[in-house]
């Protein structure tokens, strides 16, 4: 692995990653600012939410969002947060090698002592700090929101940290998927289209599995099915199976990316 290349990849992706980092923070902040009104309106809203959760087999509503720990879990579950995971991974992994293919940057890098395998490994290394930082962004968002309304002392920070770990594993999965796509695609635009399609299909399947009661199992075919904030909050356990599935499938995608980059005819 090349630490210099890892730093370069992080430097190039800094703006996209910062944007992805901001999304959960903003969700947390807005969530905090909206929270005080809930205490007065919860009696009105509770039956509506209960009816909604009866219609949707939704984990979002499986927690009591009228309690501080349930309400401040929202930054972990918000669609923007889920989008942030896919966005950060794309920014980091699609710029290199895919976007530089045929534009010279990749050729300059690979004309040095850097091998194709080390290129992929170095990019994968860049994913670690991004996943850890982004994984904690919803946690910071939750704390920020709770601080706004003076509820920070009621947050189960240990359990939230386990959710953050689960979210970091989700970011890892998207990163490895983006890397695999980036390695195989002919150029950046094609890589972006394929990746957007994969992420879009995963989101759609996840939505279908929530909306259609008999298709709950479908969510297990997507990474979102293994990201379980509400289950972790309810059980207080890290859900090791989910973590394992996300991390092992990430590792498999990474291995496949290594193999594919090495066997390409052109860089």
């Amino acid at each position: 692995m090349s630490a210099a290349l890892t730093r370069f990849a992080l430097w190039r992706a800094r703006r996209g990653c910062a944007l992805a980092l901001l999304l959960p923070l903003l969700v947390g902040l807005v969530n905090g600012l909206a929270y005080p009104g809930w205490s007065r309106e919860r009696e009105v809203l509770r039956p509506v939410v209960q009816r909604l959760s009866g219609w949707l087999r939704s984990d979002v509503i499986n927690v009591d969002i009228f309690t501080p720990e349930g309400a401040f879990l929202i930054p972990f579950q918000h669609p923007l947060t889920l989008l942030a995971a896919a966005l950060a991974a794309a920014t980091l992994m699609l710029q290199l090698p895919a976007a530089e293919r045929g534009r010279g940057g990749l050729e300059i890098l690979l004309s040095t002592a850097l091998t194709r395998r080390r290129l992929v490994a170095s990019l994968a290394l860049a994913l670690v700090p991004v996943a850890l930082l982004l994984g904690h962004a919803p946690l910071f968002g939750s704390v920020l929101g709770a601080l706004c309304v003076g509820e920070a002392q009621h947050l189960p920070l240990g359990t939230y940290w386990l959710v953050a770990l689960n979210y970091a594993a989700l970011v890892c999965w998207f990163g490895c998927l983006a890397l695999r796509v980036s390695v195989a695609a002919r150029d950046g635009a094609r890589a972006m289209r394929i990746y957007a399609l994969c992420a879009g299909v995963a989101m759609l399947l996840d939505f279908i599995s929530h909306a259609v009661r008999h298709l709950e199992w479908v969510r297990l075919a997507t990474p979102y099915g293994w990201y379980e904030p509400s289950v972790i909050l309810r059980t207080g356990s890290a859900q090791p199976l989910s973590l394992t599935v996300l991390l092992v499938s990430s590792a498999l995608l990474l291995l496949d990316a290594l193999r594919h980059q090495d066997s390409r005819r052109s860089a």
């Binding site: 290199l96 530089e100 534009r103 010279g104 940057g105 990749l106 050729e107 300059i108 004309s111 040095t112």
Partner: peptide, 8 residues
């Protein structure tokens, strides 16, 4: 190795 212009 020197290649032509490269924006990366």
């Amino acid at each position: 190795f020197l290649r032509g212009e490269c924006g990366a």
